[in-house]
Design a protein around this nucleic acid. Sequence first.
DNA 1: CGTCGTCTTGAAAGGTTTCAAACGGCGTGG
DNA 2: CCACGCCGTTTGAAACCTTTCAAGACGACG
Lengths: 219, 219
Amino acid sequence: MKQGANPADLQPAINRLSALIALGDGDVESLRATSNQVFALSAGQELIKLSQVTSRSAIVLKGWLARVRQGRQGKRQILDIYVPGDIITPTPRVDPYVAGAIVALQDVALCLTPASPGDTLRDAFQLCRQMDEGRLLRQIYRLGRMTASERMYDWMIEIRDRLRIAGLAADNEFKLPVTQDLVADILGLTAVHTNRTLKDLRLSGKLTWRMGKVRIAAE
Amino acid sequence: MKQGANPADLQPAINRLSALIALGDGDVESLRATSNQVFALSAGQELIKLSQVTSRSAIVLKGWLARVRQGRQGKRQILDIYVPGDIITPTPRVDPYVAGAIVALQDVALCLTPASPGDTLRDAFQLCRQMDEGRLLRQIYRLGRMTASERMYDWMIEIRDRLRIAGLAADNEFKLPVTQDLVADILGLTAVHTNRTLKDLRLSGKLTWRMGKVRIAAE
DNA sequence: CGTCGTCTTGAAAGGTTTCAAACGGCGTGG
DNA sequence: CCACGCCGTTTGAAACCTTTCAAGACGACG
């Protein structure tokens, strides 16, 4: 919980919400008001207290987060990813193992959603929650019915589309600020195979990922 | 949409809801009132009109349903399963491919939730939705990080627990009215491997599935 | 300059799919 | 009543995909 809000940080969220529903000036204003109080998380930290303290959602201003479930034997699976502009709605009153922990993948900045949002904003947040569910379903299909390279490609497309809506990606290029290890935990693969899969996609001309930048070839 | 409600059909749902929250007499009464109008689906039929016609949820009185996503190349993945006593809350205003179709696995009987539920019932339905999400997360972990026999065993445990809460299963035995083919689509496996995995579990004494009845050995 | 985390590659082992065939139960029609 | 066909189950063998174990290369950082 620190100061240091940069109003520009809110732009991805505004872009994303505007893609769902037409926001009025008042809506943008109320978002901007809340973004003055910034919550900071450093890489690796868990977002837990938030849902204990308030039932409000959080807006990701900066940095990526992951919703992760850790099994015994060190296996871990990432359930969902949050990028700047996303709204994180904590699942209340549920065993944290069931709901999955939310951890910061880098240094992260968040702010709360307005305490009394207007109808429009409320609808927008509702739509966000529906999109959350859509991502979980997509993840299930990906893990259940796709091969390694299909999973990789499909996930890259999903991330590209999400970043693009938030205004954070050029047409087919975006910054991917995570390790291959982490991508492995998303795609249900080992880090080694993730690396090989990436090589295959590069050799077949589908996509490249170098220097933290992904470029997807024309579909 | 037919008549033929049997009040006893409502018991699984009452059991399940009571496990979440203490229901008052009025709550049970209002549930019972709605269960007079029964919606019937025959095996293979899709539950679509419901969410177009009303935003109310549906209570499963009889039969199993699956939420399924169908890929091209004939691959299909079951995202979630509904058993008697479950509450199905359709995802509104979302591309049906994204949300997944809900299909009846056998002849199914449903009724709607009350149009104006009391606070208690409203809370209970809210908790049901949270449990829905929990199941999706569990499914993601299962597909991403478990082997075939782990998936099978874990899923059987989940179904046993759910049926038990609804009052539909003895301690370690329950009716499983689906084909191996369908279980394969749940677990992200082929039908052939599902069969082999079942054999492994039987030989290692973990569980048996014969004549439509599953028996799980002591944990 | 050494260390650490990440990326990369090889070879072998393991798990899962694919293709093919056969078996069993069960309802239908001859 | 029996034969047939259909659907779901079961099994085998080979191909394929992914993991595991091991080692080396690279870059960032103290």
